[in-house]
């Protein structure tokens, strides 16, 4: 069997696209290991100095801790909200269902700067909350939830509705049926959702920049460093670590999502990777 000839133009386009997308990310580790404070070619030699220097900065450690705290809490909150929405969307019929679910997915396409500014207005002007890690958590939960819904929808949709009914029929309560049958089957989806929203929160800059209080998150801290040119290689080193970590988390998340789909005995129905 021979398929139709691939159009040349598309191949060129795809390669150009990939270079455009990933070249900056490849430059990151190149300069992170470059033995010069100036970010320019030609490269000067190999060093791990910038990574070593990272370990000595106290403010950086605080920023990492803040970011981790925000990312963990946001991931848990967004996943719980995502589970509720995914279950409601796949199991129940209610008036205005399509519209409501569309509305929940909206933050996915809104410009982050708009979300950030309007949240700032709401939090500071209307609710009069002091800015803190919790305001960032609120905002991150908001932007992570659509991703969680997308992932968990595929997990819940793949479940046969009669599985839970069978458990109830065999004497279990509604909650136990959910706990004993549905939960184990969607666990891979839940893990994937936690990892994705954790990654999003950890990497997010604009909203954190607007809503953070006295303790900056890691991306906000990095932004602050950029004012000092001699710190640039350190930033590159930090960026390298973050990119590696994000890619790793994304792969693990997708692995769990696929495993979930397989476990429910169904074939692939989309996803992120």
């Amino acid at each position: 069997m021979s398929g139709p000839r691939k159009p040349r133009g598309l191949t060129v386009y795809a390669i150009a696209y990939l270079i455009f997308l990933y070249a900056p990310i490849i430059l990151l580790p190149m300069f992170a290991f470059n033995a010069s404070t100036i970010i320019a070619f030609p490269l000067q030699g190999f060093t791990t100095e910038w990574f070593v220097r990272l370990t000595g900065v106290q403010a950086l450690h605080t920023a990492v801790r803040t970011s981790l705290f925000i990312a963990v809490v946001s991931a848990i909150l967004a996943t719980i909200l995502g589970m509720c929405a995914a279950r409601a969307g796949t199991r129940y019929e209610f008036p205005g269902k399509g519209g409501i679910l569309g509305l929940i997915m909206l933050p996915l396409v809104l410009p982050e700067i708009i979300v950030a500014v309007s949240l700032l207005v709401v939090v500071v002007q209307i609710l009069q909350f002091p800015l803190s890690a919790w305001t960032v958590i609120m905002a991150h939960t908001l932007i992570c939830t659509p991703f969680c819904i997308a992932i968990l929808n595929s997990s819940f949709q793949n479940l046969d509705a009669s599985l839970e009914e069978a458990a109830i029929d065999l004497g279990e309560s509604r909650w136990n049926a959910f706990r004993l049958v549905t939960l184990p089957l969607v666990t891979p989806g839940i893990i994937a959702s936690l990892l994705i929203s954790f990654t999003i929160s950890l990497d997010e800059f604009i909203i954190a920049f607007f809503l953070t209080g006295s303790e900056p998150t890691l991306p906000v801290y990095i932004w602050g460093l950029l004012r000092f040119p001699q710190q640039l290689p350190v930033v590159m080193a930090l960026g390298t670590i973050l990119v590696a970590l994000s890619i790793l988390l994304l792969i693990v998340a997708e692995y769990f999502r696929r495993r979930g789909v397989r476990r429910a005995g169904k074939t692939e129905t989309g996803g992120f990777l």
């Binding site: 046969d160 599985l163 009914e165 069978a166 109830i168 029929d169 049958v181 089957l185 476990r263 429910a264």
Partner: peptide
């Protein structure tokens, strides 16, 4: 009387075997 309290048991059309 809820389904889990009735003296009935069901074989579902899809069998609803717990896959895990």
């Amino acid at each position: 009387v809820a389904a889990n309290r009735r003296p009935t048991n069901m074989v579902f059309q899809s069998y609803a075997i717990f896959p895990h």
